[in-house]
Design a protein around this nucleic acid. Structure first.
Lengths: 190, 190
DNA sequence: CTCATTTCTTAAACCAGCTTAATTTTTTTG
DNA sequence: CAAAAAAATTAAGCTGGTTTAAGAAATGAG
């Protein structure tokens, strides 16, 4: 049960079977169809979400009424608007399933209670968050050094699973490109 | 002693005076002049650095041999190349003082040992890292929704202390602008 | 207080990537 | 399986921000 979740935790900390049982008490499992929402603009991000199976996107509506995608999450990635989650502020984001998905949610209060009962999880999340910071340092570096064309080519060769599972216009949005430009780049490459 | 450091920790976790004394054993304090290096390209980022006083920048050399600044750190900010620090990989970055600075360093091994002796610090760093993720989500959103002109105006009104302390061409680099364009924007605003 | 270095400004030509608009292809749904 | 909706393509014209090249102003080290 929730094997992606447990194996992800055990990659970083020791967690005996007894602790796993305790941990499960704090989780809210969700089964969602395609195009269902975990968060909508104006709401507070009540939970932090682990993708056990499926795929999520986070986006906001920009001033031209486009859906601007800022993040994806595939299996064993975490998703949340952390500012909204931590400080109880209304979020500007939508979080939506791209595919039928199985999600594990910690509400803010269950998250706190779980960390108090299972201090190893404090370590797990410290490591996960530190790796997220590292990943965003790296992505940020790419935006400084690559042209948009290079950024697209780099992304699509580095993460071919996304190109398979996610519509092209969503990848364009995430990379800050117009769908027309991506189309032009693909033509060029053939 | 190290009052910025201690007050920052106590903002997020309880730490009694005895624990503070234990904590100090793991710290390496550094006094640096202007333009001294904590990290150079090709080296492994040996430590995670807390700015007790002064100012740091992180940059890499891009393909046109420009210094591309990716981060600043003022008082009570942390600075590190987290990928290099965590996975012992050579870093592409330089970390350099912009002003005379007082820095507190944890080497990777002292960091680990400290976390084992003082588990409250695991919580402190979980919170600090989670807030860093939140901050990078926000900054990232700005890059999607603002033009470069808006991004500059937003930065210089949100962080006037930087405009005071940091040369204009460094701010331009950090924001991904040419110094010429920033100069043009300033002229326009007067 | 002066020289060398660093930082900032001005201006013109240029281009990567966007906008607009129309058409085609693919996917979804009843 | 047919109609409607969603996604992808094509192409022409345009623009925000860069590049290049000087010169002017500010700063700091001796």
């Amino acid at each position: 049960m929730y094997s992606n979740f447990i194996s992800h935790i055990r990659k970083y900390v020791d967690l005996d079977d007894n602790s796993v049982a305790l941990l499960f008490k704090y989780i809210t499992p969700l089964k969602l169809k395609r195009k269902e929402f975990l968060l909508k603009e104006g709401q507070i991000c009540q939970s932090i979400y682990f993708v056990e199976k499926g795929c999520l996107r986070m986006y906001f509506i920009d001033d031209k009424l486009n859906e601007q995608i800022t993040q994806f999450a595939l299996e064993h990635w975490w998703m949340a608007d952390h500012f909204s989650f931590m400080d109880n502020k209304p979020s500007p984001y939508f979080i939506e399933t791209i595919e039928k998905s199985e999600i594990l949610a910690f509400t803010a209060s269950s998250f706190e209670a779980m960390l108090r009962e299972l201090p190893q999880m404090e370590r797990y999340f410290r490591i996960v968050m530190q790796r997220a910071v590292a990943a965003s340092q790296l992505r940020n570096k790419y935006t400084y050094e690559m042209s948009k064309e290079e950024f697209y080519q780099h992304f699509s060769t580095s993460f071919p699973e996304f190109v398979q599972r996610v519509p092209q216009y969503m990848i364009a949005s995430y990379l800050g490109l117009t769908p027309q430009y991506v189309s032009e780049l693909r033509k060029k490459k053939l």
